[in-house]
């Protein structure tokens, strides 16, 4: 085992953490585990890809790479638009499916089941539109550069790691220091009281979807940039996302990120020590361990 494993794990973990933040937010404020969250990652990646290729076409050819990175100006722009569109998709699903069920006072588990249905629909739609063949943001091969201490990473990877840290800090500050953050915490604790206290609960719920789906889009683009884009990518990431959200403690944004890093590193170590074919089992093992030992997670409140 080398420090490089740690590096690879952290990079994959940052992406898992960003996705897990969306899960933890929807869980703590809307009170159900959203099985469709993984699809927001996939949709985010495909939307960004489609926009980036569209922009490249309009600009008359692929944009030349920015600095040391593998992608040109089209990808950052496409990601921003992708975030908006993914958020729009989440709001649409909520308006059509979760909202009516919520207003009817449906049991949690009905919402979970509906999210399961939404997940399959969204994933298969992607498969229909884009086929199941993997696609890539860029064909450029990046050389990992030495960072000292025997560590190597590509500029893309370092950028992703930095971006994830910045995003987590921003979301954390937003939740703890601002009015909308306080409103979100209020709705998370007691939705009825929040309404009575003058909080626009529907607005808070929309905000949660926008944040969750926006971060999912970023995570999807990261995953697409670091690995590849496939309709199944969201499904494959779902278990690591849940494991990270529960390990971090439901409702805790820093917890989700730290747990995401832990899951990422554990997966990287497993690949190194046991074999890549067992990577997908890591999240399950972590999930079982946390449910056995500390169901409220590392930073969660006791129920």
């Amino acid at each position: 085992m080398t420090p490089q494993v740690l590096m690879d794990g952290l990079i994959a973990g940052a992406m898992i953490g960003l996705g897990a933040i969306g899960i933890t937010l929807t869980y703590s404020i809307l009170r159900f585990s959203n099985f469709a969250h993984g699809e927001f990652l996939s949709w985010g990646a495909y939307l960004a890809l489609a926009i980036a290729s569209g922009l490249g076409y309009l600009a008359g050819g692929p944009a030349s790479p920015i600095g040391p990175f593998s992608f040109g100006w089209t990808l950052p722009v496409a990601t921003l638009l992708g975030i908006a569109l993914t958020a729009g998709l989440a709001l649409l699903v909520d308006a059509l499916l979760f909202g009516p069920l919520r207003n009817r006072g449906s049991a949690v588990i009905i919402l979970v089941m509906a999210s399961f249905g939404a997940a399959l629909t969204l994933r298969s739609l992607l498969e229909f539109i884009f086929t199941s063949k993997p696609v890539y943001f860029t064909n450029a091969l990046q050389i990992a550069r030495p960072l000292g201490g025997g560590l190597r990473a590509t500029p893309d990877q370092l950028l992703m790691l930095g971006l994830a840290v910045v995003l987590v800090l921003a979301i954390h500050l937003l939740l703890t220091r601002t009015a909308i953050g306080r409103s979100m915490r209020a709705v998370s604790e007691n939705r009825q009281l929040a309404g009575v206290a003058g909080i626009d609960v529907r607005m808070v719920i929309r905000t949660v979807w926008i944040f969750g789906a926006g971060l999912a889009c970023v995570a999807g683009v990261m995953s697409g940039l670091l690995v590849q884009i496939r309709p199944q990518m969201g499904l494959d990431l779902l278990l690591p996302l849940f494991a990270a959200a529960i390990l971090g403690g439901i409702g805790s944004v820093p917890g989700a990120m730290i747990a995401g890093l832990i899951v990422g590193v554990a997966e990287a170590m497993t690949v190194q020590l046991i074999g890549a074919e067992w990577r997908a089992a890591v999240a399950f093992v972590i999930l079982v361990a946390i449910l056995l030992l500390r169901p409220r997670g590392l930073f969660g409140r006791p129920e």
Binding site: F32, V108, V112, L239, F242, A281, F284, P295
Partner: peptide, 26 residues
């Protein structure tokens, strides 16, 4: 493992179990 916990933890755990079982078979 999960029946004492919140209802959707069972959902997540069974989902994970299916992934793990599929992986073991493979």
């Amino acid at each position: 493992l999960t029946i004492r916990l919140r209802a959707d933890y069972l959902a997540i755990a069974t989902f994970g179990a299916a992934v793990a079982i599929h992986l073991c078979i493979l």
